[in-house]
């Protein structure tokens, strides 16, 4: 039993180190954002919120933030509709090739983003799609669909369809049973899928980079440009705000579905 204990102590130690390792960049970023100097020293010699003020005066920031949120919302909504329909077909249907469809719809997740971007760029040129906004939107539906498909398929295949029968015998018509029983029970699955799809779209760099122009830049691209042109702690301030936003979203997600479900991979 000594070895068993040793094994437990060892894994616990590694896990503790991993937690520190994973949280370090986040903590560091937040600390640096409150420095008063122009360099990224730690700990800051003096605390200040000047970089948050500086952040708000960068004129390029707001349009790119708006664009990213807009693209993420619309593409997630489209993916929710297409992905849910497809998940219903795969889980409830009785036709050959269901597993192949499932794999295909999830596969953009496993393909290198840059390669998808390059390939799409060539196709869009071929068909004459030059509008940056439209191109971004089309591309981001491809990015978000796998997340929706994966979580909705998982929760749909766990759904107990006798609940619908029960609702019907208790006086609900079929459409009403879907609305009253299926929708609320599946809501956590939809929410998790939509959450990760939204974050993936907000975060995407390797595909978006091929479809931006001088006026249409998503947030990650704008931030990378800031970093290359004039790196100062205002980037840390922006990152901190994004981290805060993510924490808020995760908190809501935890309230609604629970962290353990978010971790289901």
């Amino acid at each position: 039993m000594i070895t068993e204990r040793l094994f437990n102590v060892l894994t616990a130690t590694v896990a503790a180190l991993v937690v520190v390792f994973l949280l370090t960049p986040i903590v560091v970023t937040i600390l640096v954002s409150f420095t008063s100097s122009t360099v990224f020293t730690l700990p800051p010699a003096e605390w200040s919120t000047r970089w948050y003020a500086r952040m708000t005066t960068r004129p390029e920031l707001w349009p790119s933030l708006m664009l990213s949120v807009e693209i993420a919302l619309i593409s997630t909504a489209i993916s929710l509709v297409l992905g849910t329909l497809c998940a219903i077909a795969v889980v409830r249907g009785r036709f050959p090739g269901r597993e192949a469809i499932q794999t295909f719809v999830v596969s953009p997740l496993m393909m290198p983003g840059l390669v998808i971007g390059v390939a799409m760029l060539q196709l869009f040129r071929e068909v004459g799609l030059r509008d940056a906004y439209a191109s971004l939107l089309v591309a981001h539906v491809v990015i978000t669909m796998p997340y929706v498909m994966r979580t909705v398929t998982a929760s749909l295949s766990l759904f107990d369809f006798s609940l619908i029968d029960a609702a019907r015998t208790l006086g609900c018509s079929y459409p009403k049973a879907l609305l009253k029983v299926m929708a609320p029970v599946l809501a956590p699955g939809f929410l998790t899928g939509a959450l990760f799809a939204f974050l993936a779209s907000m975060d995407n760099y390797p595909i978006s980079i091929f479809f931006t122009d001088a006026w249409t830049k998503t947030l990650p691209i704008q931030m990378l440009q800031f970093l290359e042109e004039q790196p100062d702690p205002s980037i840390a301030a922006m990152s901190s705000c994004l981290i805060l936003l993510t924490v808020a979203v995760l908190f809501v997600g935890d309230r609604l579905v629970g962290l353990r479900r978010l971790a289901d991979f």
Partner: peptide, 14 residues
């Protein structure tokens, strides 16, 4: 989950 949800640009910058 937290690092998973934060953008890669932010993390690489960190």
């Amino acid at each position: 989950i937290l690092p998973l949800s934060i953008g890669v640009v932010v993390k690489a910058f960190s």
